[in-house]
């Protein structure tokens, strides 16, 4: 209180100038964000309420009323949730291993994590089709080893879809968790131990809560990427597993129904935002 009282009369003209300067710096980025991100979203929202007869709720009624499209939405959610869950189960221990690793091993592990990011999603998805198809490497190896006689159907199954999606989106889960784990002070665990907490209790009461921000960032990233994935389901499972993303593409490219595609886009966006918002809420006060 005294601080404010002391600084207020002196600082006001200076603050105004500083504020103007700050606005001057922020304005260009603001314009770019508004033009490149906000405006298209507003347009998308607008278009979703339009069909051949003008303003309407028909696009949403069709999307949320038909069992087929509810199934499509469920497919997207399923893809997002399964990918995120499995990616988390792999990422969490992986992030600790990465943080513990020293020297060349750490560089190697980080490189294996970063390099795939440089390759296009299409390339990686195609790589999985080559691995998983009936005459693919996995089947041929299993046959050659005498473990199976006939090729197992792997490509165009949900398993293939989830395996591919987990592989492709894994780095987006590991990196935020690793960033938190790497700076986690080992003294926290030691303090918990000296206070009487067993390693298991320490994990659940100290380590997990302290790494929660990383988990939440990773979940938000991996989920929003996988729930809206287009290339991965198209190449690894195809027609029999329509998702919101493939539905949007179909509506724009084949059916020429931009209103319906926009509505699907809005629903997809709403799902992603809901998950991210929920994550942000969880990360704030875990008390």
């Amino acid at each position: 209180m005294t601080e404010a009282a002391l600084s207020a009369p002196v600082a006001s003209p200076k603050v105004d100038r500083e504020r103007l300067t700050a606005i001057g710096f922020v304005l260009p980025s603001f314009v770019i964000i508004a033009g490149v991100f906000a405006l298209p979203l507003v347009l998308l929202l607008g278009v979703s309420f339009v069909d051949a007869n003008g303003l309407t709720f028909a696009n949403y009624k069709r999307l949320l009323g038909a069992p087929y499209y509810l199934w499509v939405i469920w497919n997207s959610l399923r893809l997002g949730l399964l990918t995120t869950l499995i990616a988390f189960l792999i990422s969490y221990p992986a992030a600790f291993a990465l943080a513990r690793a020293r020297g060349p091993l750490r560089s190697l592990l980080l490189a294996t994590l970063f390099l795939p990011l440089a390759a296009s999603v299409i390339v990686k998805a195609f790589a999985w089709t080559i691995l998983l198809r009936s005459d693919g490497i996995v089947n041929e190896t299993l046959i050659a080893l005498g473990i199976i006689e006939d090729p197992i159907r792997m490509i165009f199954t949900e398993t293939a879809l989830i395996v591919g999606a987990v592989n492709i989106f894994l780095p987006f889960m590991i990196l935020p968790i690793y960033a938190i784990v790497a700076q986690l002070d080992s003294r926290y665990a030691e303090a918990a131990a000296t206070l009487g907490a067993s390693p298991v209790v320490t994990f659940f009461r100290v380590i997990l809560p302290l790494t929660l921000p990383g988990i939440i960032a990773g979940v938000a990233l991996a989920f929003s990427l996988s729930v809206s994935a287009y290339v991965v389901p198209t190449l690894l499972i195809g027609e029999k597993y329509p998702t919101l993303a493939t539905t949007i593409a179909k509506a724009y490219l084949l059916a020429r129904e931009p209103g319906f595609g926009a509505a699907a886009g809005v629903v997809l966006l709403a799902i992603a935002i809901a998950v991210v918002a929920l994550s942000a809420r969880l990360s704030r006060e875990p008390k």
Binding site: R187, E190, P286
Partner: peptide, 25 residues
């Protein structure tokens, strides 16, 4: 005996207070 069964109290240089808990926590 592992540290959590020793009944010792340690005050660390960095204090190592749990940032996700309150003072009372």
């Amino acid at each position: 005996v592992p540290p959590h069964k020793r009944n010792v109290g340690v005050v660390f240089q960095s204090y190592a207070l749990f940032p996700h808990l309150t003072v009372a926590g």
